[in-house]
Structure formats: C-alpha cells, structure tokens
Amino acid sequence: MSDDNLIRTEKLVKVYPMGASKVTALNRVNLSFRRGEFAGLVGPSGSGKTTFLNIVGSLDTPTSGSAGVLGRKIETLSHREAAALRNRSIGFIFQTFNLLPVYTAYENVEFPLLLLKVPSAQRRQMIMDALDWVGLSDRADSRPSQLSGGESQRVAIARAMVKKPPLLLADEPTANLDAENSHHILRTMEKLNRELGTSFLFATHDEKVIGYLRRKITLVDGRVDHDEPLQPSTGTGA
C-alpha cells in the first residue's frame, strides 16, 4: 500500500447467513482511497454500502479478501486493536446521530478525547474548536433532547472530528435531515475535508450528498459497478 492509500481492499467478500441461506453483501470488491478524498459509495438498499463502511471502520470483518486501513489489516485485528484503531483514527457519523443521551453536546464531543486520555486543558480547547467548526459553541451545554436534528448531526460531526482523524465514515448522514440542514452539514464536512485534510467516505443514496462528492463509487449487488471522479455541483469545491 502506498503512503497515499488510506484504504485498499482486495477481493473483499462479505457473506451474511440469512436463515438457511446466505446473502453476499460484498462480492470481490477492489477499491482504494487516497488521503484527503471526499468520496461516496452510492447504490440502492442492499448494495453493500454500509457493509463496506462497517468493514473499513473495523466494526465488522470480511468473510474473505483483505481490507487495509491506515496500514492495518482489518481481518487480522483483535477486538482490542480494532477498538484502538477506531478510537485513534476513524470518526463515524450515523444516520440517527447516535449521541449519548445523558451527555451535553460538550460532553459528547469530549468523549473520544477522554478515551484517548487527552489532558484536560488541551481537551477543552479541542472541544471548543470542534464545536466552533460546526457553529455550535453556544449550544455546548445543551443535551441531545434539546437539539434539533440538524444540530444533533453537527454535534455528531464535531464528535467525529474533534480528534482530527485521518478518516471519517458517514453512513447516510443526511437521511434524517431536511434539505437546509443537509446542505449545512455537507458544507461543514466539505470545509473540514479541505481545511484539515480529513478523508470522508460516505454511504448514501441522497442526491444532495452526491452533489458534494468528488468521487462516486456505485455499488450494485455487492460489486463495484462504476467508480468515477465528479466535479462537485453543489459545494464550494476543492
């Protein structure tokens, strides 16, 4: 794997048991992503987008083939090593925001830093910076129940970005948001990609998201159907 290759999969296969039968979610997928990419996996439901993200995010393991992420082979990682990889190097953004309900926005953003044992003074600065990136410095003390959907997703972005990971995985990040909030968070992510150099990999079938992508990989039935560069039509572009 070259230094620029953040992710490289080779003949990646994922098969799920489904009752007595088996479903092939990924079928010999070969993909590479470089640092700083703003790419998306698109395709219909069941095409394998989320499965790919889960494997690359070390939340799941391949049935066969190989998935290299940041120089680590996902299929060889122990639970502890996978957790450490996620904690240090990968940020996640989910469709349903997945904020910890008992924590304030500030504490939600603080959580990954606590796991990384970042000293408190440095932690505070990093959290405030992250909340500032997403424009929520004034909502630091709000709990998730007091935030709108858009605000919640922006807190989730701040949480994913606070540790400045090289890779951020976003699974249908706009699915629960209206158009205005969708564009808002996509612009935020695009800005972070540009300013911090973080690689973004989306799983989506939202046209709004696709409008911001610089690379689109279309998955159909677990195979790569198209892999094409795009000229962003909505965002500010790189």
Binding site: L59, H79, A83, R86, N87, R88, T96, N98, L100, L115
Partner: peptide
C-alpha cells in the same frame, strides 16, 4: 443497543 454500538464505534471495547 444503538448506544452500545455507538460506544463501540467511538472506541470502547466490548469489555469496557
């Protein structure tokens, strides 16, 4: 369950 998944995604081990 979703919270458990989130904790794992954020870097918690199953043991934690």
């Amino acid at each position: 369950r979703r919270e458990i998944g989130t904790l794992v995604a954020l870097g918690f081990t199953r043991g934690q």
